[in-house]
């Protein structure tokens, strides 16, 4: 009896852990359709999530689910997840290498404009040196240009309303300067 129970317990444990492993793999399989099999998003308006900061990825999934960040695509996807799933998915993608999208470096004059705008607001105070991000602050260096332009525009109109502080900072920066920043960040 004792032996049987042991076996039974071991088998159950195996199934449970397999099930969990499968769930994670299953869950992230969906993502590749848009965020890319190799981490390069299939469309230019879709953000890179490979190698992104785990804290940031988690917070975005949380915000999509809560409806704090609106997206017809991402909201239904995120709604399926519980907090632990989100943390696990965030951890999973953060461990992947950041893909090189092969975007060109910004020309000197554009870069200089971007640097001056960035210094005025103090972007690196949060996004850190070379815009690598940390914790719940995203990496921006090498992010897709079209996505950057879109999400910055969304911050300005508050269509992206999940971080009013970032909206305020974007509103305090001229569209001209932001265009330079987009090109600069994409090329880092």
């Amino acid at each position: 009896m004792f032996g049987k129970l042991m076996m039974c317990g071991a088998a159950l444990f195996l199934i449970a852990s397999q099930a969990r492993a499968e769930t994670i793999a299953e869950k992230v399989a969906v993502c590749t359709g848009c965020h890319g099999e190799d981490g390069k998003p299939v469309d230019k308006t879709i953000p890179t999530i490979w190698g992104q900061q785990a804290g940031y990825l988690y917070i975005q999934l949380r915000d999509f689910k809560r409806g704090d960040r609106k997206s017809e695509i991402m909201q239904p996807i995120a709604t399926q997840f519980e907090r632990d799933d989100m943390l696990a998915i965030a951890e999973y993608f953060s461990q992947k290498p950041w893909p090189d999208l092969g975007q060109p470096r910004a020309p000197k004059d554009v870069a200089a404009k971007a640097v001056s705008a960035s210094a005025s607001v103090g972007c690196p105070a949060c996004h850190l040196d070379r815009f690598q991000g940390d914790g719940t602050v995203p990496r921006l260096a090498g992010m897709g240009r079209d996505y950057l332009a879109k999400t910055i525009a969304d911050f300005r109109t508050r269509a992206r309303g999940n971080n009013p502080g970032m909206s305020d900072l974007m509103l305090a920066t001229s569209p001209d300067d932001l265009a330079a920043l987009v090109e600069y960040l994409a090329g880092l």
Binding site: A54, G55, S94, A125, D134, T136
Partner: peptide
Amino acid sequence: PITVYCCG
């Protein structure tokens, strides 16, 4: 994984 801070 979750840290939230403004100034470094």
